[in-house]
């Protein structure tokens, strides 16, 4: 089943300029894994070296934040995953 991942503009040079990538999987974690298999550089911006999701990355599934336990959240065909980057503060 196909799920769309919407890529943050800051990361699009890592996906060959693509704004969205179609991926497969049963969970958000599967989908990100599929994305990284195709675009390995995305792994470095999404995950910390120990394998945890980066503290600045928040994953939205359709219109809802998936936090906490983001990677375990189930997905279905037609869903959209948004990689958001929390750059606010100061």
């Amino acid at each position: 089943m196909s799920i769309k991942v919407s890529i943050h503009k800051t990361h699009r040079h890592l996906t060959g300029g693509l704004e969205t990538v179609d991926v497969k999987g049963q969970t958000v974690g599967d989908c990100l894994k599929d994305l990284i298999e195709r675009y390995p550089e995305m792994g470095k911006v999404l995950f910390k070296p120990g394998g945890k999701l980066h503290p600045l990355i928040e994953i939205y599934l359709n219109t809802k934040s998936t936090y906490p336990d983001e990677l375990k959240k189930p997905v279905k065909a037609g869903d959209e995953i948004y990689i958001t980057l929390m750059l606010a503060g100061g």
Binding site: T10, P55, L56, E58, S65, Y67, M86, A88, G89, G90
Partner: peptide, 25 residues
């Protein structure tokens, strides 16, 4: 329960330093 507050509560406002810098902001 918001991820951004969890991150901020662990690292303070410097939490955005690395990503903002590597992005070029």
């Amino acid at each position: 329960g918001a991820k951004v507050n969890k991150t901020q509560g662990a690292l303070g406002t410097p939490f955005i330093w690395g990503a903002t810098n590597s992005w070029g902001g």
